[in-house]
């Protein structure tokens, strides 16, 4: 019965997305072209990667506000390791991503070890990690990366942007883990009732540590793609990313209280947002007007979901 309900939310969302795509294609003939869609996929990848991990985080009943700051910190470290410490670029990438993953682990450690609510723990690390990025970089940007590095953010494989492949593979892995493995079932169990999960022998803290570390890792991966796409590093990179990510996940039907949500829903939510942003821009709505629409869609979608739930007595 639970899966029936989940599927129903996603069905509504899928129908909504198809309608949006259809209307947007009617409004502008530039929208439904292969080139534009692939380009939109490229722009969606960074938010998308982080949203996969955020789905796990929110399903456990947590939240991670620090992902944008982890992205900024990783980007700065990548530049500093390479340019100022003179490491070879591949080593700098690996090391910076390790730091980003560690930053995510620290979130999980604070949350599990000290019982700090995730909202407040990651609010603190949001400021801390962004502050470290600002302090380390002192507002200097790093440029002049070698040509091969731009492949991650600008290259194509078989005509499809490289990062869209990464996002696709990561989506499949995340969907399999959350939907089909004991780890995924533990994730749902923690979100549904943490105390019960603990008493039924689920290793709650270890599971959460893995999930927050994964959020750090995927934010760091997004950072590398971001730097490669825009060819420079700045300490303000990824500012506000957390809001885009959470909007996508919540729109995708993941309950902010935990225990419910799927990767497919998240992906649909992301596609709907990106399509709205792009389609409205193409049909003449000014850039900031689209943010208003996204806010309205978010509240509207949750409102409809809440009303449906009430009718079912859930």
């Amino acid at each position: 019965m639970m899966s029936a309900r989940l599927l129903r939310h996603e069905t509504i969302l899928a129908v909504l997305t198809v309608i949006a795509l259809f209307v947007l294609a009617m409004l502008s003939d530039k929208f439904f072209t292969g080139e534009n869609l692939l380009n939109q996929g490229r722009l969606m990848s960074e938010v998308g990667l982080v949203a996969l991990a955020m789905t796990f985080v929110i399903v456990t009943g947590g939240i991670d506000l620090s992902v944008g700051s982890i992205l900024g910190l990783t980007a700065i470290l990548l530049g500093v390791f390479w340019k100022y410490l003179g490491l070879p670029l591949p080593a700098a990438i690996v090391l910076a991503m390790a730091c980003g993953t560690f930053a995510g682990w620290v979130n999980g450690w604070i949350i599990t070890r000290f019982n700090v609510p995730p909202l407040i723990a990651t609010l603190a690390t949001l400021a801390l990690y962004r502050g470290l990025a600002e302090g380390i970089s002192e507002a200097r940007s790093v440029r002049g990366y070698p040509e091969w590095f731009f492949f991650f953010g600008q290259g194509e494989v078989l005509g499809v942007p490289f990062q869209l492949w990464i996002l696709g593979i990561a989506t499949v892995i995340a969907a399999v883990i959350l939907g089909l493995t004991p780890f995924g079932r533990a994730t749902y169990a923690i979100g549904a009732n943490e105390v019960a999960a603990r008493f039924s022998g689920i290793r709650v803290n270890a599971t959460k540590l893995w999930i927050y570390s994964a959020a750090g890792f995927l934010s760091a991966l997004a950072a590398v793609i971001f730097v490669s796409r825009v060819t420079t590093t700045r300490s303000d990179m990824g500012t506000g990313l957390e809001l885009d990510v959470i909007t996508g996940v919540v729109l995708g039907g993941t309950s902010i209280f935990g225990g419910r949500g799927t990767i497919i829903g998240t992906v649909l939510g992301l596609i709907l947002i990106q399509a709205l942003k792009n389609g409205l821009a193409l049909s003449g709505v000014k850039g900031d007007g689209t943010i208003v629409v996204i806010g309205l869609v978010l509240i509207g979608a949750i409102l409809v979901g809440a009303l449906f739930d009430r009718n079912r007595g859930g």
């Binding site: 939240i63 909202l119 919540v250 806010g295 978010l298 949750i302």
Partner: peptide, 16 residues
């Protein structure tokens, strides 16, 4: 609806 979701939406609406 949790306040964080509503105010997240308000943030977009007001800012945009």
């Amino acid at each position: 609806i949790p306040s964080i979701v509503v105010t997240l939406g308000m943030l977009s609406i007001l800012k945009g």
